[in-house]
Design a protein around this nucleic acid. Structure first.
Length: 314
RNA sequence: GGGAGUGUUCCCGAGCGGCCAAUGGGGGCAGACUGUAAAUCUGUUGUCUACGACUUCGAUGGUUCGAAUCCAUCCGCUCCCA
């Protein structure tokens, strides 16, 4: 009987210090890092996504970072599949897989071993549904969902057309309702023996402060040039053009708003995003929270947690 | 110095005698989330010993049964003429 692989997961809001901590743990515990981030996968999008630098990548091996052209799709299904492979590889080399990232959906799906229903390319269906929405309105689409999957409809707000359409898309593409997907996606036994470490802040204000400062520093590193690149290719870069850090500058490129106004907007979006991430991670149980308080205590605590975890049985 | 305008709850901004603790947006806070997730969406937001009470709409004083809404004076800001 195969024993479950040990993995360490570092999660937390943007600008909380996940990269720094993951590098440290990787060095101390002979680990390799798997990024659980939906945007850092794209080549050429370095500054805005706060991707690990090449120097930092010298300190520890990184996976699922900087390997896709920005025009390519990336999603939970791809992530969980690739990440699971990487975990196997790393473990087989007697190394510790460290998952680090801020995309809650990706992390939770990976850790719980969620399986996604096979589906072919759904872009046509998605297009049709989008058109139907435009023509018949949100209420109509919501009623449609109610008729095929009332249970799921109850849990989705009618205004949330993205979720309504996806549920319809799943049904059209696979014949399965979202309710069925939700029921059948969990494995009998959880796939990993995991240690979840969440980075949070004693003071929300300090986190927001960090975010603001990081935006300024990104700008001085050349964020604008990168944003321009994304702007010029926005029709190709479907996913990445929606990333925080780029789309906020579009009004500037279109001469509709000042650079200052766009910069403020970016800081704002980043703060809002951080809050959403915290909401997600707060809901996940079993996260061991370490709190940044201006000292190095949180690092100590994270090291200790990991020490106990890897040192434990086996 | 003369003329026109303006001052609203954390911010912007409606309201122009009672239906106003005061539309809306932003922010804050809280929440949802199974193939777009750095996306998408929801709730809440004066105070309290809360189905009621209390204090708010630059300040003070009036008119009125009743004012954020009308009048007077004052203070601040904006614009125009000097």
């Amino acid at each position: 009987m195969e024993e479950r692989k040990k993995i360490v997961v570092i999660c937390g809001p943007t600008a909380s210090g996940k990269t720094k901590l993951s590098l440290l743990l990787a060095k101390k515990f002979n680990g390799e890092i798997i990024s659980a981030d939906s945007m850092q996968v794209y080549k050429g999008l370095d500054i805005g996504t706060a991707k690990v630098s090449l120097e930092e990548q010298q300190e520890a091996k990184h996976h699922l970072v900087d390997f896709l052209p920005p025009s390519q799709k990336y999603n939970v299904e791809i992530f969980t599949r690739l990440a699971a492979e990487k975990i196997m590889e790393i473990s087989s080399e007697e190394k510790l897989p460290i998952i680090a990232g801020g995309t809650g959906l990706y992390i939770e799906s990976l850790v719980n071993g969620i399986t996604f229903t096979d589906q072919n390319d759904t872009s046509e269906i998605r297009k049709e549904l989008a058109e139907a929405l435009k023509e018949k309105g949100g209420e109509y689409m919501y009623n449609l969902l109610e008729s095929i999957d009332g249970d799921y409809a109850k849990n989705v707000h009618p205004n949330n057309t993205v979720r309504v359409l996806r549920a319809l898309e799943l049904y059209k593409a696979t014949g399965k309702t979202m309710t069925q997907q939700l029921e059948n996606s969990h494995p009998i036994k959880k796939p990993y023996d995991e240690l979840l470490i969440g980075i949070s802040y004693i003071s929300r204000e300090n986190l927001y402060d960090n975010i603001n400062k990081r935006v300024d520093s990104m700008l001085s590193q050349g964020l604008l040039k990168e944003a321009r690149y994304v702007y010029d290719n926005r029709n190709e870069f479907k996913n990445s053009a929606a990333a925080i850090g780029y789309k906020e500058f579009f009004p500037f490129f279109e001469q509709l708003q000042s650079l200052e106004a766009c910069t403020e907007k970016l800081k704002q979006s980043s703060r809002n995003y951080a809050k959403r991430q915290l909401t997600w991670f707060n809901r996940m149980k079993n996260i061991n929270w370490v709190y940044v308080d201006g000292t190095e205590n949180y690092i100590e605590k994270a090291l200790q947690l990991t020490e106990n975890f890897v040192g434990g049985n086996n």
